[in-house]
């Protein structure tokens, strides 16, 4: 039986991913900081699917604890997905360095270091799939949200480098850019329906990628994001700074 580790298991996307894999009979390991929330998700997943679910406390901002965390998993998962992210308050992050640091560390430093540690173990074993949920916001620095965007850009670049290093070892590294997703994190924002995915669609994309049904190293959950981001990436900076995108 296959095992997936969901890092950020109490988020809406993390929950959807865990349920998607559990429905297909996978063993589930969910990790996060909120132990009561993890227990709630574990009971839900177990009742809905009969899958075996274990919960693991993890503080993504505490890099030194990662070795002990991975040792505590019991068995090394076949697939690990990081859903950890912090949108933060863009206005506050502009002027408050400690808030900006939280955003950067939650989106980049923590997930990158943890996936890096997992990568070492996957290489020793000779197999494994690493999936990072990054963001379209990481493809261009925008006036409205650049601290978040920069941290996701860092994560995307890290995944890219890791992918290119591990390819010869048979370890796959996949970057998934969900675009807008209707979650707790975006509940207060009005989102355009055509480019906004439900958490279940992100879960479907992760599942299809992990099981080889959807190919590609960098995926947009809704394919319409591919041409949109092509345009956004290709606008010259001199023009881009005059637009309010």
């Amino acid at each position: 039986m296959n095992t997936i580790l969901v890092i950020g298991g109490t988020s809406d996307i993390g929950r959807a991913i865990a349920l998607r894999f559990a429905a297909a009979g996978w063993r589930i390991q969910i990790a996060g900081r909120d132990t009561a929330g993890l227990a709630r998700e574990a009971a839900d997943i177990a009742a809905r699917t009969t899958s075996d679910v274990s919960v693991h406390r993890l503080d993504i901002l505490s890099g030194p604890s990662f070795v002990a965390f991975l040792d505590s998993l019991g068995s090394l998962p076949d697939v690990a997905v990081s859903v950890v992210g912090l949108l933060g308050d863009a206005r506050r992050a502009e002027a408050d360095p400690s808030h900006a640091a939280d955003v950067m560390r939650s989106n980049f430093e923590g997930p990158a270091l943890l996936l890096g540690e997992l990568a070492e173990r996957f290489v020793s074993r000779g197999s494994g799939v690493l999936i990072g949920i990054s963001s379209v916001a990481g493809e261009r620095g925008r006036a409205s949200n650049y601290v978040y965007g920069a941290s996701k850009a860092g994560f995307t670049a890290f995944l890219s480098g890791l992918r290119n290093r591990l390819a010869r070892h048979g370890i796959r590294v996949v970057t998934i850019n969900p675009g807008f997703v209707r979650t707790k994190m975006t509940a207060a924002i009005k989102l355009p329906p055509i480019v906004t995915a439900e958490p279940g669609e992100v879960a479907d994309a992760v599942f299809a990628s992990a099981t080889g049904k959807r190919r590609g190293d960098v995926l947009y959950v809704r394919r319409i994001w591919s041409p949109i981001m092509l345009v956004i990436r290709s606008i010259p900076e001199t023009v881009f700074k005059r637009l309010s995108l």
Binding site: R40, E41, A43, D44, A47, R48, T50, K184
Partner: peptide, 11 residues
Amino acid sequence: LALDRVLAFDP
């Protein structure tokens, strides 16, 4: 609406 978890099920 966010309170949508199954707490227990006896098959």
